[in-house]
Amino acid sequence: MMSHLSQAFAEWMAGGGREIGEIHIEPVEGGFVLSHRDDVSRTDVMAFSGAEAARDLAHFDEHGKFRPLKTAPNLRRGWKLHLADPGELRRALDYFYPAMLGVWLSQQRGRLVTVSLRDTLARQTGMYAVTKKITDAQAQTMIGSFCRTDGGCLKRILWPIAPGEPVTSLPAEKFQTEAPADTLPLLCHEACNLLVARARQVVKRAEASA
């Protein structure tokens, strides 16, 4: 039996779905071919096959540098990946954009609970407990730089700084969940650990210069 997620994703594909983040999905005879969306018409690319190849393609950028944030807009180019069936396609996309299919389906079903930045910081302990001290102004500036689509992260932000206090330091499209029919949106329902780590830096630097 096909799982709910696989079924929902198959329906999205059948409805013309082709793009996730920087990935283009092309259905072909005998499976699917994935590539960087800017490489769709290129033929001088390296050919890979199988979902496991996606792990390395997603793990390092063009210069061989580690990509801890998979939704950063620095997916390497110059490759195509053949996947034999929908199961492989899903596994490969889980390497390229971890959890993004699942988060998308939860949002579609109205089951995605968003968490404000204040709530995320409030539950931190240990070395990150200090992040609670970040001011609203510092948080706005930090998010405006760290999460920006060009150079930061491709996800759409669904969380506010606090209830009734939205992020105002990025353009309005950064917070929209709607996407064209051929595009599956990358959704951020809660600040990631990278942003929490950045908040720690912001607080520590402010304390050092005070």
């Binding site: 799982s3 709910h4 997620l5 801890p68 944030l69 998979k70 939704t71 889980d94 971890p98 959890a99 299919l101 699942g102 988060v103 389906l105 939860s106 995605l112 968490v115 329902h189 809660e190 990631c192 650990n193 990278l194």
Partner: peptide, 19 residues
């Protein structure tokens, strides 16, 4: 699935992958 504290999928994301 895998889940990580400092990488993705994160501990806050992974349960959305599970059916």
């Amino acid at each position: 699935y895998c889940a990580f504290w400092k990488e993705e999928p994160s501990l806050r994301q992974v349960l959305h992958m599970v059916e």
